[in-house]
Design a protein around this nucleic acid. Structure first.
Length: 593
RNA sequence: GGUUCCGUAGCUCAGUUGGAUAGAGCAACAGCCUUCUAAGCUGUGGGUCGCGCGUUCGAAUCGCGCCGGAAUCACCA
């Protein structure tokens, strides 16, 4: 039972006894007491004045007195205006701390089979900061959902086909002189990305050429020779033309090798990887089937659409007039395939908010096709990562490349630790490992501490901090605690298995216990909100509180042995919670730094 | 133009089942290492919570209207 529900019960009993009325537990609003006031939890008595027929102060005082005398866990209260601030006894808190040391029973009540899709890169350009946010969110959410006892399957869907891929293929064919990543001394994804950019450049030239010949913008875009060639290539691809397929396999192979390296650096993994090239066919079949059932309509130019006007949306094309598929087509196929394969209770898509419309349409079309599970699809719509001057633009070269950023994080971590001399005397390979941990920790925490739904700003000039509310600060606190524990071991001081409930504790220590006790609630909240930032903010407040304690109270030099062992245990428990929380964010913590 | 989202300190962000005096970090300034790791701790300054109206005991939080920004409304992905 949580502390909140325990307190709610006690409160209801008090109301019944004092005023002979039963109340709905939903009316009882419990919150943690604000720092400036005495108490652990606060109940607002305003909603109960009609029952008590007394002033707020009088009502709160009566209830407070009742609780204090009838509940052994509650030992004090204070009334300010209509707020009843309730304090639990120290022994109550010590018992709570002892409970956290018991083996954990995983919550199996809400256990679900959840499929989560994230990453979903295109194979025409390298990964950038926006993809990093996606990957980190997806990985962290998977960890959080697992921690809540769910069965989680992480999948990636690679967009490896489509007109965009043909563009880079065409450009390589025309101007590449058969160059390979090895010859270019470049990661494969980077090389392919270069050709995508080159296509765009040449295409734009042709468009402005046609514009000067009097064509409209739309005509120019549709009639430029390059785009016609790219479309032709896509048709050949869908017709399994051997030459096109060979080129496509070769270039995609380069890209996968490049992505693999970036995923490895970030610690991103998947249980299964889908390829759009293998799923779009099913989508096509489903769409054609939809025409025969009358769910979809075939136009006179042979294109196939879903009429969504009754849902307040427009018509959505699902197959082009030349018979080729669009992005939506494969997503329909993939969703159906997965549902059949995993029979998931929930299918979560981690995809940017620029695709909100896409998912609205996807759910509607799937429903139209006769599948009743369309409401099991949920879109974790995360915000864009922007620069101070706005969106990242590849044309202006302002895109923050994933590999370069990661590399920069390592070198910053390295120069900071060298400057501080923290890693002197540590073996070279361990040093290297710590530096990578800290650099990555800074990056990951920076991204994950922000509410996923919101857009966020990254300033390349200021880069990412290593002080204050950052990953390294949290990692540092963990290392500090570990250092104390090592010293305790050396001195032969043991960490106890539990604490006597009569141990004297101060306010500072009590605050830490409260935070440690709150861990399960926080994980549950993060899971139901699909929000890793909740974990990040929690960890920060725990660490902040611990450092305050560390500064004010000595541990190993404490003479009272009962207090000393309590403080050791408290420190150890804090370290465990830091490590657990950071794991949920995909961040490792070092033993020393 | 339609739809959706956002607007909190100079900057980056917390804070909404409506609650007490709106919080952190960075940046600036001033202190704290003969004492368990100073990537730390303490303090100072910094706010019309975009603006207005409403709902009520009470609004950063809910409703309506403006202003400003973003995304999207492709036979692109």
């Amino acid at each position: 039972m949580t502390i909140e529900s325990f307190l709610t019960n006690e409160f209801c009993k008090a109301i019944e006894n004092l005023y002979s009325q039963t109340i709905d537990i939903k009316q009882v609003q419990i919150q943690k007491t604000k720092k400036d006031f005495n108490g652990d939890y606060t109940v607002n008595v305003f909603p109960f004045l009609k029952i008590s027929r007394k002033s707020p102060e009088q009502t709160a005082t009566e209830i407070g007195e009742f609780l204090k005398h009838n509940s052994k866990e509650i030992n004090n209260f204070e009334v300010i205006k209509g707020f009843l601030n309730i304090s639990f006894s120290n022994s109550f808190w010590i018992n709570k701390l002892n409970e956290t040391l018991l083996p954990i029973q995983t919550n199996t009540i809400d256990k679900k089979n959840i499929l989560i899709e994230y990453s979903s890169p295109n194979t025409n350009k390298p990964l950038h900061l926006g993809h990093i946010r996606n990957n980190l969110l997806g990985h962290s959410l998977s960890e959080i959902l697992k921690e809540n006892g769910n069965k989680v399957t992480m999948v990636n869907l690679v967009n490896d086909r489509g007109i965009h891929i043909c563009k880079s293929m065409l450009a390589w064919q025309k101007w590449g002189n058969n160059i390979t990543p090895v010859e270019a001394i470049k990661k494969g994804d980077k090389l392919v990305g270069d050709f995508y950019v080159l296509f765009d450049k040449e295409y734009k030239k042709q468009i402005s050429d046609l514009l000067s010949k009097g064509k409209t913008q739309k005509e120019a875009e549709n009639e430029a020779p390059l785009i016609l060639e790219a479309r032709e290539m896509l048709q050949k691809w869908e017709a399994h033309d051997t030459e096109v397929l060979e080129l496509w396999n070769k270039m995609n192979g380069w890209v996968y090798a490049g992505f693999e390296k970036t995923y490895n650096e970030l610690g991103i993994t998947f249980d299964k990887i889908y390829y759009e090239s293998k799923t779009y066919g099913l989508g096509k079949d489903e769409v054609l089937k939809g025409v025969t059932t009358g769910a979809l309509i075939k136009k006179e130019d042979n294109s196939i659409c879903a009429d969504l006007t009754s849902d307040g949306l427009d018509e959505k094309v699902l197959l082009r007039s030349d018979g080729t598929s669009v992005y939506m087509t494969q997503d329909i196929g993939t969703a159906i395939m997965r549902k059949n394969e995993f029979n998931a209770d929930e299918m979560v898509y981690v995809v940017g908010n620029e695709q909100n419309y896409h998912f609205q349409v996807l759910k509607l079309v799937i429903k139209k096709l006769g599948y009743n599970w369309s409401d099991k699809i949920s879109h974790l719509s995360y915000g864009m990562v922007e620069l101070p001057e706005g969106k990242m633009k590849s044309r202006e070269g302002t895109v923050v490349d994933a590999d370069e950023l990661i590399e920069e994080m390592y070198s910053t971590a390295k120069s900071i630790s060298e400057e501080l001399g923290k890693l002197d005397g540590i073996p070279e390979n361990e040093k290297e490992e710590i530096i990578r941990m800290v650099g990555l920790g800074a990056l990951k925490y920076f991204i994950l501490k922000v509410d996923p739904k919101k857009n966020m700003v990254f300033n390349p000039k200021e880069s990412i901090d290593f002080d204050g509310n950052t990953g390294p600060f949290i990692q540092y606190t963990h290392a500090r605690i570990k250092s104390v524990i090592r010293k305790a071991n050396e001195a032969g001081i043991n960490i106890p298995k539990n604490i006597s409930e009569n141990t004297e504790i101060n306010e500072n220590e009590k605050s830490i216990i409260k935070l440690i006790t709150d861990y399960n609630n926080i994980v549950f909240e993060a899971s139901s909100e699909l929000n890793p930032a909740i974990i990040a903010n929690y960890t920060y407040s725990l660490v902040k509180e611990y450092n305050h304690f560390y500064h004010n109270c000595s541990i190993l030099k404490e003479e009272n042995s009962e207090i000393q062992s309590f403080r050791l245990l408290l420190s150890n428990s804090t370290a465990i919670k830091i490590k657990d929380s950071m794991k949920l964010l995909g961040i490792n913590v070092p033993e020393r730094m």
